[in-house]
Protein backbone atom coordinates (compact mmCIF):
# COMPACT_ATOMS: atom_id res chain seq x y z
CA UNK A 1 0.00 0.00 0.00
CA UNK A 2 1.22 3.43 -0.89
CA UNK A 3 -0.04 4.78 2.41
CA UNK A 4 2.31 2.50 4.30
CA UNK A 5 5.14 4.85 3.49
CA UNK A 6 3.42 7.70 5.29
CA UNK A 7 3.75 8.12 9.00
CA UNK A 8 0.86 6.39 10.70
CA UNK A 9 -0.71 6.81 14.12
CA UNK A 10 -2.10 3.55 15.46
CA UNK A 11 -2.57 2.36 11.90
CA UNK A 12 -4.15 5.56 10.68
CA UNK A 13 -2.66 8.09 8.33
CA UNK A 14 -2.08 11.62 9.45
CA UNK A 15 -4.83 12.75 7.12
CA UNK A 16 -7.33 10.41 8.75
CA UNK A 17 -6.39 11.58 12.22
CA UNK A 18 -6.66 15.27 11.25
CA UNK A 19 -10.03 14.79 9.53
CA UNK A 20 -11.36 12.66 12.36
CA UNK A 21 -10.18 15.00 15.10
CA UNK A 22 -11.51 18.01 13.16
CA UNK A 23 -14.87 16.34 12.70
CA UNK A 24 -15.10 15.38 16.36
CA UNK A 25 -14.26 18.93 17.42
CA UNK A 26 -16.86 20.26 15.00
CA UNK A 27 -19.47 17.97 16.57
CA UNK A 28 -18.55 19.13 20.06
CA UNK A 29 -18.59 22.75 18.88
CA UNK A 30 -22.06 22.32 17.41
CA UNK A 31 -23.12 20.86 20.75
CA UNK A 32 -22.16 24.14 22.38
CA UNK A 33 -25.06 25.77 20.56
CA UNK A 34 -27.18 24.41 23.38
CA UNK A 35 -25.95 27.28 25.55
CA UNK A 36 -26.97 29.99 23.13
CA UNK A 37 -30.29 31.47 24.14
CA UNK A 38 -33.29 30.35 22.15
CA UNK A 39 -36.46 32.24 21.35
CA UNK A 40 -39.43 30.52 23.03
CA UNK A 41 -41.79 29.15 20.37
CA UNK A 42 -45.33 27.87 20.19
CA UNK A 43 -44.92 24.11 20.06
CA UNK A 44 -47.37 21.47 18.83
CA UNK A 45 -49.28 19.49 21.49
CA UNK A 46 -46.85 17.43 23.53
CA UNK A 47 -43.93 19.75 22.82
CA UNK A 48 -44.43 21.95 25.87
CA UNK A 49 -41.43 20.47 27.69
CA UNK A 50 -38.82 22.46 25.77
CA UNK A 51 -35.82 20.50 27.09
CA UNK A 52 -37.38 17.17 26.18
CA UNK A 53 -38.30 18.45 22.72
CA UNK A 54 -34.80 19.70 21.93
CA UNK A 55 -33.18 16.56 23.35
CA UNK A 56 -35.29 14.17 21.37
CA UNK A 57 -36.19 15.90 18.10
CA UNK A 58 -34.16 14.48 15.23
CA UNK A 59 -35.75 16.85 12.67
CA UNK A 60 -37.34 13.93 10.84
CA UNK A 61 -40.24 16.14 9.73
CA UNK A 62 -42.90 13.52 10.35
CA UNK A 63 -45.06 15.89 12.41
CA UNK A 64 -45.19 18.55 9.67
CA UNK A 65 -46.05 15.94 7.16
CA UNK A 66 -48.88 14.31 9.07
CA UNK A 67 -50.59 17.50 10.33
CA UNK A 68 -54.03 17.44 8.65
CA UNK A 69 -54.42 21.20 8.95
CA UNK A 70 -50.88 22.09 7.95
CA UNK A 71 -50.33 24.20 11.03
CA UNK A 72 -47.06 22.56 12.11
CA UNK A 73 -44.13 24.28 10.45
CA UNK A 74 -40.37 24.00 10.77
CA UNK A 75 -39.03 26.83 12.92
CA UNK A 76 -36.94 29.39 11.08
CA UNK A 77 -33.27 30.08 11.55
CA UNK A 78 -34.39 33.47 12.86
CA UNK A 79 -35.75 31.58 15.89
CA UNK A 80 -32.25 30.35 16.77
CA UNK A 81 -29.90 27.84 15.18
CA UNK A 82 -30.89 25.08 17.57
CA UNK A 83 -34.59 25.77 17.02
CA UNK A 84 -34.24 25.70 13.26
CA UNK A 85 -36.25 22.80 11.79
CA UNK A 86 -37.87 21.94 15.11
CA UNK A 87 -41.69 21.97 15.04
CA UNK A 88 -43.61 25.14 15.75
CA UNK A 89 -47.19 26.18 15.00
CA UNK A 90 -48.10 28.56 12.21
CA UNK A 91 -51.67 29.84 12.45
CA UNK A 92 -51.75 31.75 9.15
CA UNK A 93 -54.32 29.54 7.49
CA UNK A 94 -55.68 27.24 10.16
CA UNK A 95 -55.48 26.34 13.82
CA UNK A 96 -54.73 23.29 15.96
CA UNK A 97 -57.88 21.34 16.85
CA UNK A 98 -55.91 18.47 18.40
CA UNK A 99 -57.01 16.41 15.39
CA UNK A 100 -60.57 16.36 16.73
CA UNK A 101 -61.89 16.21 13.19
CA UNK A 102 -59.70 13.46 11.80
CA UNK A 103 -58.56 11.49 14.84
CA UNK A 104 -61.05 12.08 17.63
CA UNK A 105 -58.93 14.55 19.56
CA UNK A 106 -55.77 12.43 19.65
CA UNK A 107 -53.11 14.61 18.03
CA UNK A 108 -51.51 12.80 15.10
CA UNK A 109 -48.22 14.67 15.51
CA UNK A 110 -47.78 13.13 18.97
CA UNK A 111 -48.82 9.75 17.58
CA UNK A 112 -46.27 9.74 14.75
CA UNK A 113 -43.32 11.26 16.63
CA UNK A 114 -40.84 8.37 16.71
CA UNK A 115 -38.59 9.80 19.42
CA UNK A 116 -41.06 11.08 22.03
CA UNK A 117 -40.01 14.65 21.33
CA UNK A 118 -43.74 15.32 21.27
CA UNK A 119 -45.23 13.48 24.20
CA UNK A 120 -48.38 14.33 26.12
CA UNK A 121 -48.45 13.79 29.88
CA UNK A 122 -51.05 11.34 31.15
CA UNK A 123 -54.56 12.79 31.00
CA UNK A 124 -53.57 15.88 29.01
CA UNK A 125 -56.47 17.64 27.32
CA UNK A 126 -56.66 20.40 24.75
CA UNK A 127 -58.22 22.72 27.34
CA UNK A 128 -55.46 22.19 29.90
CA UNK A 129 -52.46 22.16 27.56
CA UNK A 130 -51.41 25.74 27.04
CA UNK A 131 -49.66 26.10 23.69
CA UNK A 132 -49.57 29.87 24.05
CA UNK A 133 -51.92 32.76 24.81
CA UNK A 134 -53.55 35.04 22.28
CA UNK A 135 -52.78 38.75 22.44
CA UNK A 136 -54.82 41.52 20.81
CA UNK A 137 -53.12 44.67 19.54
CA UNK A 138 -55.75 47.28 20.04
CA UNK A 139 -53.94 49.68 17.70
CA UNK A 140 -54.40 47.39 14.74
CA UNK A 141 -57.62 45.56 15.64
CA UNK A 142 -60.56 46.62 13.48
CA UNK A 143 -63.01 46.17 16.34
CA UNK A 144 -61.14 48.77 18.34
CA UNK A 145 -61.83 51.19 15.49
CA UNK A 146 -65.46 50.35 16.17
CA UNK A 147 -65.88 48.64 12.82
CA UNK A 148 -67.70 45.75 14.50
CA UNK A 149 -65.41 42.93 13.39
CA UNK A 150 -65.73 39.83 15.62
CA UNK A 151 -64.25 37.04 13.54
CA UNK A 152 -61.91 35.98 16.32
CA UNK A 153 -64.65 35.94 18.92
CA UNK A 154 -66.81 33.76 16.68
CA UNK A 155 -63.92 31.41 15.82
CA UNK A 156 -62.80 30.67 19.39
CA UNK A 157 -63.70 27.03 20.13
CA UNK A 158 -62.98 27.32 23.86
CA UNK A 159 -65.06 30.38 24.81
CA UNK A 160 -61.86 32.10 25.75
CA UNK A 161 -62.96 35.46 24.36
CA UNK A 162 -65.65 37.89 25.27
CA UNK A 163 -67.02 41.12 23.83
CA UNK A 164 -67.07 44.34 25.81
CA UNK A 165 -69.88 46.90 25.83
CA UNK A 166 -68.66 48.26 22.48
CA UNK A 167 -68.49 44.75 20.93
CA UNK A 168 -64.70 44.76 21.10
CA UNK A 169 -63.16 41.33 21.66
CA UNK A 170 -61.06 40.53 24.74
CA UNK A 171 -58.96 37.45 25.44
CA UNK A 172 -59.63 35.60 28.69
CA UNK A 173 -56.02 34.74 29.46
CA UNK A 174 -56.85 32.03 31.98
CA UNK A 175 -59.08 30.16 29.52
CA UNK A 176 -57.10 30.66 26.28
CA UNK A 177 -54.95 27.66 25.36
CA UNK A 178 -53.35 29.14 22.27
CA UNK A 179 -55.08 26.97 19.68
CA UNK A 180 -54.75 29.75 17.12
CA UNK A 181 -58.32 29.77 15.80
CA UNK A 182 -58.58 33.53 16.43
CA UNK A 183 -55.29 34.31 14.69
CA UNK A 184 -56.15 32.15 11.69
CA UNK A 185 -59.33 34.13 10.92
CA UNK A 186 -58.08 37.67 11.72
CA UNK A 187 -58.54 39.93 8.69
CA UNK A 188 -56.63 42.92 10.01
CA UNK A 189 -53.74 42.41 7.58
CA UNK A 190 -55.91 42.06 4.53
CA UNK A 191 -56.35 44.66 1.81
CA UNK A 192 -58.33 47.64 2.92
CA UNK A 193 -58.19 46.83 6.61
CA UNK A 194 -54.47 47.09 7.30
CA UNK A 195 -53.53 49.53 10.04
CA UNK A 196 -50.53 51.80 9.66
CA UNK A 197 -47.35 50.12 10.84
CA UNK A 198 -48.96 46.71 11.25
CA UNK A 199 -46.50 43.89 10.57
CA UNK A 200 -48.62 41.05 11.89
CA UNK A 201 -52.25 40.30 12.54
CA UNK A 202 -54.04 42.14 15.31
CA UNK A 203 -54.48 38.94 17.31
CA UNK A 204 -51.47 36.67 17.64
CA UNK A 205 -50.81 33.65 19.85
CA UNK A 206 -47.73 34.39 21.95
CA UNK A 207 -45.51 31.63 23.35
CA UNK A 208 -44.95 31.25 27.06
CA UNK A 209 -41.52 31.73 28.59
CA UNK A 210 -39.83 29.12 30.76
CA UNK A 211 -41.79 30.33 33.81
CA UNK A 212 -45.10 29.87 32.02
CA UNK A 213 -45.55 33.64 31.64
CA UNK A 214 -46.94 34.97 28.40
CA UNK A 215 -44.36 36.76 26.26
CA UNK A 216 -46.54 39.73 25.35
CA UNK A 217 -45.28 42.03 22.63
CA UNK A 218 -47.64 44.77 23.65
CA UNK A 219 -49.00 45.64 27.06
CA UNK A 220 -51.78 43.26 28.07
CA UNK A 221 -55.02 44.43 26.53
CA UNK A 222 -57.39 42.70 28.88
CA UNK A 223 -56.85 45.13 31.75
Amino acid sequence: MSENEEKTYAGMTRRTVVLGAGGTLAMLGLGGLRFIGQTPLIRPPGGQDEDQLLSACIHCEKCYEICPRNVIAPAHIEDGILNMRTPTLDFDDDYCDWCKEVNDGDPLCVKVCPTQALQLPEGATAEKTILGIAEINTEWCLAYKLIGCRFCYDACPYEAMELDANNRPLVLNDVCNGCGACESVCVSLQNGSIAEGADERAIIVRPLDENGEMLARFSPSTD
Binding site: M27, L28, G32, L33, R34, L54, S55, A56, I58, H59
Partner: peptide, 15 residues
Protein backbone atom coordinates in the same frame (compact mmCIF):
# COMPACT_ATOMS: atom_id res chain seq x y z
CA UNK B 1 -20.38 11.95 22.60
CA UNK B 2 -21.61 15.45 21.86
CA UNK B 3 -25.23 14.23 22.06
CA UNK B 4 -24.51 12.81 25.54
CA UNK B 5 -22.74 15.93 26.77
CA UNK B 6 -24.99 18.61 25.35
CA UNK B 7 -28.24 16.68 25.39
CA UNK B 8 -29.49 16.97 21.85
CA UNK B 9 -28.92 15.01 18.62
CA UNK B 10 -26.04 17.12 17.36
CA UNK B 11 -25.35 15.53 14.00
CA UNK B 12 -29.01 15.92 12.95
CA UNK B 13 -28.35 19.68 12.69
CA UNK B 14 -25.96 19.18 9.78
CA UNK B 15 -26.97 15.78 8.38
Amino acid sequence: LSAVIFGFPVFCLVC
